[in-house]
Simulated assay, not measured.
Amino acid sequence: MQIAVVGAGRAGTAFNLALTRAGHHVRLVHHDELADALPADLVLLCVPDGAIPEVAAALPVGEHVVAHVAGSLGLDELAPHARRALLHPLAALPEAEVGAARLVGARYSVAGDEAVRALAESLRGTAVSVEPARRAAYHAAAAVAANHTVALLGHVEALARAAGLELADYLGLVAQAVEDVATLGVDRALTGPASRNDVATIDKHLEAIPASERPTYVALARAAFDIAERRRATV
């Protein structure tokens, strides 16, 4: 397939590498060089969400497919093109090489023209459909799974340093928790003070940790208590 990837940021460069390695003929163009995007079978917009309508409107209308990779947006932003699509990977793309590797075999949210399903399949990915009314919720879950997990690990890092240790000392425990969720499910994977309603230990934690970290700890402890309560209700 002849593909033009518009946008040379982290997503654009990752898709450029992955699609090229999958056997497609790919051109990587900047958003201000749209004249170089055509001819193409598919134009993949890897630009900031807010720029998608403007960039799409600047592209000549034709038989080509115009798609974007924004998780929270639908197809209306791609007007006036008749053949529209979206292809959002459930993968973190921190830089080109790492991102390209993660795009292979990833899960993709797709909508619109069937060409994007073929694109996902060429990357050995799995295509899933999300109802338009649920796209924001879908993207919120993706943001929590990736971005907020990084924020959570920042919280762990701050608490580790308060104990005289480093984040690296806790990463094995993090990996075990993720593995337990994958194999047991959220409810059964929960361990620790909240799982046994040990308020006294949590109070000791709050006394020991930096004041700046207490609101985050309390919010997470409440979420853990909710999971524990849900588990007890089903036993």
Rank of each mutant, 00 (worst) to 15 (best):
A57P: 13
A70T: 05
R27Y: 03
E63Q: 14
P80W: 04
P60W: 06
A11Y: 06
G74K: 10
H81Q: 15
L19G: 08
L59R: 10
A18S: 02
L45K: 00
H30N: 10
C46T: 12
A22W: 06
D76E: 15
I52Q: 02
D41K: 05
L42I: 06
V55C: 08
V61H: 05
A11Q: 07
V43Y: 02
V55R: 03
H24D: 07
S72V: 07
A58Y: 12
H81E: 14
E77V: 15
T20Y: 05
G74P: 07
C46Y: 02
V29N: 09
H64Y: 05
A70W: 05
H64V: 09
H68V: 12
R27P: 05
G74Q: 09
V65S: 10
L42N: 01
D32M: 01
D49M: 04
L17R: 09
A56S: 15
E63A: 14
H31I: 03
A35F: 06
L17I: 06
F15G: 15
A35R: 09
V65I: 14
P48Y: 01
V43A: 01
L45M: 00
D49K: 03
P60F: 05
P48W: 04
R83S: 02
A57L: 14
A79T: 13
V69R: 11
R21L: 04
